[in-house]
């Protein structure tokens, strides 16, 4: 069993800060790409997360008649909570906030709660466009979730363990991303899915006035937008021990390698997400079940054969 130290409860703060850093870089990268595209000074892009935070903190909240207030609130705050719970099991080099023996399953369980949070955020305001967005998310989740789950089992299978530190340690020499590329690609698509980002952003689409985001303003909107970037970041951070060799690397300490790899991946996810048209939910359902699912099942079969032969 590889040495990881379960650190004290106070270390949840640095773990959360590191996740926050990755999320802010993702938001900045997105705004910088927009600024470059529009030919504006990229510095205005770089400070976008800060400016947006200031703007939304100053803005009052907004409530709609006969809103389902408690459920709406749970949905809005939930994304951020889910993102932080996901990274609880990620080892930053040799220290980990929560060294669960079933860390991979934990991540899976938390990513399913996002279904509820996004749906509740859309259901809460008692508004037609939000409601349509909420149901769009469920339709989309039906398509990405199963392939994502199978993609998560591939590294666990190769490592023979569900403990995240074991999975990271099993990649001495060769990253899982290299020899199980299908699982890695499907995992990344799943991350875009639960972060409602890029090609899987239709639940917040402009065609339904922002969908799940249509009625929220002020701090509520800030929490939802930040939660989205935090989920994208959490997906990138979790990919490091799962597919990208964990904290292994020359010179730098382990935790810094995890951070560097996560930053590179999150910027790549932002860039690729921008370059693709939306995968419209009604078509994506068929794609998920008839293309992604068999592809990732074959990937798991290949991994299983490598393990036993």
């Amino acid at each position: 069993m590889p040495e990881v130290v379960t650190v004290g409860a106070a270390w949840a703060v640095p773990a959360a800060l590191l996740l926050g850093l990755v999320a802010v870089v993702a938001a900045s990268a997105d705004a910088v790409m927009v600024a470059r595209r529009d030919g504006v000074d990229v510095r205005t892009g770089a400070i976008a997360p800060l400016a947006e935070t200031a703007r939304l903190l100053r803005q009052p909240r907004r409530v709609t008649p006969a809103a389902d207030a408690p459920l709406w609130r749970v949905g809005r705050g939930g994304l951020l909570v889910a993102a932080l719970l996901m990274v609880a099991v990620v080892p930053w080099g040799s220290w980990v906030p929560a060294d669960l023996p079933v860390g991979v399953v934990w991540f899976n369980a938390v990513d399913v709660t996002v279904w509820a949070f996004v749906w509740l955020a859309g259901w809460g305001p008692n508004a037609a466009f939000s409601l349509v967005g909420a149901y769009r998310f469920l339709a989309q989740a039906l398509a990405y979730e199963l392939p994502l789950m199978f993609a998560l089992t591939a590294p666990a299978l190769a490592a023979g363990s569900l403990r995240v530190a074991d999975v990271a340690a099993a990649q001495q020499g060769l990253w899982f991303a290299v020899w199980m590329p299908v699982a890695f690609a499907v995992y990344c698509l799943g991350v875009l899915g639960f972060a409602v980002w890029g090609p899987l952003a239709p639940p917040t689409g402009g065609d339904i006035a922002g969908g799940v985001l249509a009625e929220v303003s002020g701090p509520d909107r800030l929490l939802l937008l930040a939660g989205r970037y935090a989920l994208l970041a959490a997906g990138a951070v979790f990919a490091v021990p799962l597919f990208l060799g964990g904290g292994a690397g020359p010179l730098l300490p382990g935790w810094l390698w995890v951070l560097v790899k996560a930053l590179v991946l999150v910027v790549a996810l932002v860039a690729v997400g921008r370059r693709l048209p939306a995968l419209r939910p009604d078509r994506f359902l068929e794609l998920g079940w008839m293309v992604l699912l068999p592809a990732v099942l074959l990937q798991v079969l290949v991994v299983a054969l490598v393990v036993v032969l």
Binding site: T6, V7, A9, A10, W11, A12, V13, A15, A16, L80, V81, L84, L85, V87, A88, V89, V96, P97, A98, D99, L100, P101, W106
Partner: peptide
């Protein structure tokens, strides 16, 4: 003990 870490991250989130 491992769930203490989970709990503390939950508290940070809140």
């Amino acid at each position: 003990t491992p769930y203490l870490g989970v709990l503390s991250l939950l508290l940070v989130a809140l």
